[in-house]
C-alpha cells in the first residue's frame, strides 16, 4: 500500500522541525515543498499536529472529509477549538479561545491559509522574542482585519492566540509575543 508522505512518521518529524523553526523565529518563511511531496502545507501541518486528543475547527471548509477521518481530531466550534484552520481572504467573524491566566496554552493556534508568503503587497515588520532586530514578512491574500483582531486578542499577555500562515507549500509563524507593524500596503 502506498501511504502519502504527510501521513508518515518521518515526514511529520521533518515538518514539525520546520514548524518549530518558524515558531521560534517569527516571520521566517520555511519552504516545506520537498517534505510534502505534492500535498499542500495546510494538510502537512494538520497531519503533523492532529490526533484524537486535540480539537480542530474548520469554519471555512478547508479540510477534506477523507482527511478529517485520518486526522482523528474532534471537530469543535472556532470559539473553542485548540486549532482553527481559516481562509485568510475572509475577515474574522469569531473570537478564538484565548486561554486563561493559569493556562494560557489553551489559547488557540490559528492556521491561516493565504495566497503567497514571501511575496505580495502586505508587508509586516515583526519584532519580539525570536527576532534579532526586525523581521520583514510579505504576504498576499491576508485580510487586514486578522492583524487588527489579533492585536485585540493578544492585548493581555499571557492570554492570546498564535498564528501560523501557510500558502501552498510555505509556512511562517507569529506567536502571541510578536509585535506587528503593518507597513503601508503597496498597490
Amino acid at each position: 500500500m502506498n501511504i502519502e508522505a504527510i501521513w508518515q512518521a518521518q515526514t511529520q518529524q521533518a515538518l514539525f522541525r520546520e514548524m518549530l523553526e518558524a515558531m521560534a523565529r517569527p516571520g521566517t518563511v520555511r519552504d516545506l515543498a520537498h517534505h510534502l511531496e505534492g500535498a499542500n502545507a495546510l494538510r502537512g501541518l494538520l497531519a503533523t499536529l492532529m490526533d484524537g486528543s486535540t480539537t480542530l475547527a474548520d469554519p471555512h471548509g478547508l479540510v477534506h472529509d477523507a482527511d478529517r477521518v485520518l486526522l482523528q481530531a474532534a471537530l469543535d466550534m472556532p470559539e473553542r477549538a485548540r486549532f482553527v484552520a481559516v481562509d485568510g481572504e475572509r475577515a474574522p467573524d469569531f473570537q478564538p479561545a484565548l486561554g486563561t491566566l493559569a493556562s494560557p496554552e489553551l489559547g488557540a493556534t490559528l492556521v491561516i491559509v493565504v495566497d503567497a508568503l514571501d511575496a505580495g503587497s502586505l508587508t509586516l515588520d515583526l519584532t519580539g522574542p525570536g527576532v534579532e532586530s526586525v523581521k520583514r514578512l510579505a504576504c498576499a491574500g491576508l485580510h487586514p482585519d486578522w492583524i487588527a483582531a489579533r492585536e485585540e486578542w493578544n492585548a493581555d499577555f499571557p492570554l492570546g492566540v498564535d498564528l501560523i500562515l501557510v500558502d501552498k507549500t510555505k509556512l511562517a509563524a507569529m506567536p502571541r509575543t510578536t509585535r506587528i507593524n503593518v507597513l503601508a500596503e503597496v498597490h
Binding site: P104, E105, D162, R176
Partner: peptide, 8 residues
Amino acid sequence: ILKAVSIP
C-alpha cells in the same frame, strides 16, 4: 513544544 515557544 510549540505552545512553550509561543509563551516564553
